[in-house]
């Protein structure tokens, strides 16, 4: 008697959500996949076809694969740096009992209120010729000049500054979930700082590290405004290239193929890292 209404209720609850996911997520992806197999035509914009040529064009051309590699290494590097800088901050915040803790958390969240474009413009003011750093260098030793804008360094710095809050917040919530007494237990059992971190904190924080890393990796792979503004015209990453194909060249099929290549690369790496983490620390 109770089984049917319950099944019905579950169906009613899951139904709209499923429809929403199908409509908002799956359908556009299918459309995108279909578009990527069409042929571009200068006057007709897009001609219905079933051709792999857009993928082939990307994959055989070292110019395009080079952009993919650049994107990959920038994303991996910024993810690693996010972890390196984010973990200590997150740990301090999570373990803080001070009344300044909420102020600290706010400080981390605050940059998220500002769009990435605006923050990139800010960095331009700091890194560019005549910017903050350049002026400081010129003041310290006349005649010298520091031009960091339009370098990979500027892009890494920009992405790092945008992604760091996501990493810190993810790690903070995970570290807060680790009983501080567990660390004290390790401490009382003779584990010094590094070994406590290695044997206790790290394995317990690993799911959070994986989540945070995947999050910032995906964000970095898809970064648009930062590489465009801080990398300049000579520094190419996937998202700006994709946008240019779509918007400036009106080449939707090729743009769709680039989008899929970017997505598949990101998903593959994400899935591989998750599988690695799960196998390595099955218990945690």
């Amino acid at each position: 008697m109770s089984a049917r209404p319950r099944g019905l209720t579950a169906g009613l609850l899951v139904g709209p959500a499923t429809l929403l996911v199908m409509g908002a997520l799956v359908a556009p992806l299918l459309l995108l996949a279909r578009t990527s197999l069409n042929r571009y035509d200068r006057t007709q914009f897009m001609v219905e076809a079933l051709t792999p040529e857009n993928y082939a064009r990307f994959l055989v051309d070292p110019f395009y694969t080079g952009v993919l590699w650049t994107t990959l290494w920038i994303a991996l590097l910024t993810t690693a740096l996010c972890l390196l800088f984010g973990f200590p901050i997150a740990y301090r915040l999570a373990r803080s009992q001070s009344r300044w803790k909420s102020a600290g958390v706010l400080l981390v969240i605050l940059p998220l209120f500002i769009g990435s474009t605006v923050r990139a413009l800010g960095w331009m003011g700091v890194l560019g010729r005549g910017g903050l750093l350049d002026s400081a260098a010129a003041a310290l030793s006349p005649g010298s000049s520091v031009a960091l804008l339009y370098t990979p360094f500027a892009v890494v710095l920009g992405i790092l500054s945008i992604n760091l809050p996501y990493m810190v917040l993810t790690l903070q919530s995970v570290i807060e979930g680790i009983d501080a007494r567990v660390e004290e237990a390790a401490d009382s059992l003779g584990a010094d700082g590094p070994r406590r971190f290695l044997h206790v904190v790290l394995p317990l924080a690993l799911p959070g590290i994986a989540t945070g890393a995947v999050l910032v990796f995906i964000l970095a792979m898809n970064a648009y405004a930062t590489p465009l503004l801080l990398g300049g015209a000579r520094f190419q990453m996937m998202a700006p290239m994709l946008f240019r194909e779509y918007a400036v060249n009106n080449n939707w099929p090729f743009a769709a193929a680039i989008a899929f290549i970017l997505m598949i690369t990101t998903l593959t790496l994400t899935a591989a890292s998750s599988a690695f983490v799960q196998r390595r620390y099955k218990a945690a």
Binding site: M124, G125, G128, R129, G130, G131, D134, A147, L228, L229, G232, A233, P240
Partner: peptide, 14 residues
């Protein structure tokens, strides 16, 4: 890449 980057570059001597 952006038009607005031109003026600061002209001003700074880049």
């Amino acid at each position: 890449t952006v038009t607005d980057a031109f003026a600061p570059a002209l001003r700074s001597g880049e």
